[in-house]
Each structure stands twice: as structure tokens, then as C-alpha cells.
């Protein structure tokens, strides 16, 4: 069993809130990912059992959503928003600066597995552009210096 007792009881509590068990699928995936960092093949099988589905049905859901990962992930995710309002205020330049600071391109991770970098579509912070999302946290009104300081402070 890779899904811990604590995660499992969280999943059961979610299931109790829905008229149909499967309604708790996204909450369950969030909980499993919080515990394991990604949705591993073992976790997929266990989730399939809990939800009385085939593993392929769980995998299909995982792969549909950008925020679920089916492979091990870097310690931190950094996403720079490059949609239009952010781009109009220098987001693409910021992304290039972040890329050169980390020595990687968007879509890659640092060799030590510390930071994975990506660009993202509008995150609902358009007036506070440019911005980036670091794990669950928004950092807004950025410039290159502020962004570097944030990146350097990550463990």
C-alpha cells in the first residue's frame, strides 16, 4: 500500500460528501499527490480499487489535468504566466531572465531536482503582472531582481 492511512481517511471523508463515489476523484487525487508528490502507478491501482474503476480510467483523469503529475516531480514548481496581459507587461522577458538564472529552459528542471520551470496560461493576476506561481503561492508585480530573490530562497 502506498496510500497512507491518513490519506485514505481523507479520501473516505471526501467520498462521504458526494452522492456518487466517483465525485471524490479529484479531491482524492489532490490528497494522494500531496502525500506522494505525484500519482504513481501503485497509487493509480489503489485509487482504482477504492473507486471501483479500472486503472486506465484513473490514468485518463490524471492525464487530462495539468496539475496532476504521473511522474516524480522536482521539489518546487515555478510557473511564469505568459498569457496576453502578463506578456504585455514583460512576462516573456521575465521568463527568459528566470531561465538564464536557473540555467534551464521552460519545461525543464534543475539537475539537482530542486526547481522545475514552466510557463502557464492566465492565473487570474493580470493587473499585477508579471507574475509567477511558486508551488501554491502567487508572486505578483515582479521584476527580474524580485524573481531571483524568490528563486534563491527556495530550499
Amino acid at each position: 500500500m502506498v496510500i497512507s492511512a491518513k490519506t485514505r481517511s481523507g479520501i473516505d471523508a471526501e467520498i462521504a460528501r458526494y452522492p456518487v463515489k466517483r465525485g471524490a476523484m479529484l479531491p482524492a487525487l489532490h490528497l494522494v499527490q500531496k502525500q506522494l508528490g505525484h500519482i504513481s502507478p501503485d497509487a493509480t491501482r489503489e485509487l482504482a480499487e477504492i473507486f471501483e474503476l479500472r486503472p486506465a480510467q484513473v490514468m485518463e483523469v490524471v492525464s487530462f489535468y495539468n496539475m496532476f503529475y504521473d511522474t516524480p516531480q522536482p521539489r518546487h514548481h515555478v510557473y511564469v504566466c505568459t498569457n496576453l496581459p502578463c506578456s504585455l507587461r514583460g512576462a516573456r522577458m521575465l521568463l527568459k531572465q528566470v531561465e538564464s538564472h536557473l540555467g534551464i529552459a521552460a519545461g525543464e528542471a534543475t539537475a539537482d531536482g530542486r526547481i522545475g520551470l514552466g510557463h502557464e496560461e492566465c492565473l487570474g493576476a493580470c493587473a499585477y503582472a508579471p507574475m509567477m506561481r511558486v508551488d501554491g503561492t502567487y508572486h505578483e508585480d515582479l521584476d527580474a531582481e524580485k524573481a531571483k530573490r524568490i528563486l534563491d530562497s527556495l530550499d
Binding site: 460528501r17 465525485g23 479529484l26 487525487l29 489532490h30 489535468y65 496539475m67 496532476f68
Partner: peptide, 11 residues
């Protein structure tokens, strides 16, 4: 009852 569900990144 009110139940909150968090999405997972899909426009």
C-alpha cells in the same frame, strides 16, 4: 450542504 471541490488545471 456546501461542498468545495478544487479543480486541477483545465480551462
Amino acid at each position: 450542504d456546501v461542498v468545495i471541490q478544487r479543480g486541477a488545471g483545465a480551462y
